[in-house]
Design a protein around this nucleic acid. Sequence first.
DNA 1: ATAACCATGTAACGAGTTACATGATTCC
DNA 2: GGAATCATGTAACTCGTTACATGGTTAT
Lengths: 193, 193
Amino acid sequence: MALRQAVLATLLDGPATGYELAKLFDAAIAHYWHATAPQLYQELSRLEQDGFVSAAHVTQHDRPNKRVMTITDAGRAELERFAGESSKPPAFKNDVLVKVRTADVVATDPLLTGLRDSLDQCRRKLDSYLLMEHRMLKGRSHDEYVATARRVGPYLTLRRGIRYEQENVAWLVDAIDVITRRADRRSPQEART
Amino acid sequence: MALRQAVLATLLDGPATGYELAKLFDAAIAHYWHATAPQLYQELSRLEQDGFVSAAHVTQHDRPNKRVMTITDAGRAELERFAGESSKPPAFKNDVLVKVRTADVVATDPLLTGLRDSLDQCRRKLDSYLLMEHRMLKGRSHDEYVATARRVGPYLTLRRGIRYEQENVAWLVDAIDVITRRADRRSPQEART
DNA sequence: ATAACCATGTAACGAGTTACATGATTCC
DNA sequence: GGAATCATGTAACTCGTTACATGGTTAT
């Protein structure tokens, strides 16, 4: 039930629509909180009812109308309360690791194909994170940024995402290598790409 | 809906009871698949109905009776099928990152207290992973192990967990440092532990 | 004595996913 | 002409969490 707080924490960066939040939860926030669009629209309605966000209806002519959500003082107080609460252990769901655990039991080729695919996606995610970091830093060094920026929260969480994806890439490269070499040893006549 | 496969993949290491699986999902598997005990008991019933596991009822005298679950050939075939499927993007839920994102907006002291707590837990988790690795390697080097072990899946996933927790510890130490120093600058008269 | 461990489950509730519904505009 | 982007939501369903229920053994 910390979806509320994840949404409120995101709105600290400024007002946003449900649609914009959905994109953010698919990008910058994906490495620590997963949520789908219908979930966000529903949660925003609840947050509005509870007075944690206020909605501004914006009429547009070239595009569909939208509802821009802004965090209220009650919303900030809720984050304050949440920060003082003890944290639940994190919850992860990662198919790729489940599949790697079945190596040596399942066929090697489809497994490797899937892993190469995951590696591609991790690299793309990493690139997008590094681009965000570049835009945040605007030429400043890490030390300069954490000493002078108005807020460091979004930067610190982004750094965690970057390190996570870097580890992911390194691990996948290694896992693919290990699994490939073991497969080669078992059937040396077969060439593997 | 990959809980099934996560359970089946775990049963590749040998038969286990629901209770043992619950402990594993809280320890060695926690970094890639979260599940609670009631969920596992329910899923095991379904897996049995579908013929992916077979249950052996073991009567005990000093302890409660138990049901030992073994993966069947149909279960292995299901893992085979799953390994060939394309993977869903991983789903994460991590309160700690949500809280860090609110730094500079919420009170510093309760936030830091929570982060030190998380750091403690990460270190304990890391220690337990390193112990598991030590037991798995039995004195062999990484290269020796991946070249000669019967299966490498459990080792590869464990390595991912170790690196994840190492990064977590390093990141938390840094985040605590950054947040503490910024708080000191804003109120230098106040001493911080 | 009291807590922790072993061991299995159900029931009620809350959270999350998927499919569906709509419709204009802009890019290829 | 077709896909992608902008934009919001509902409804049906599945999944996951929490509380409850039981009860013996072992360690402090």
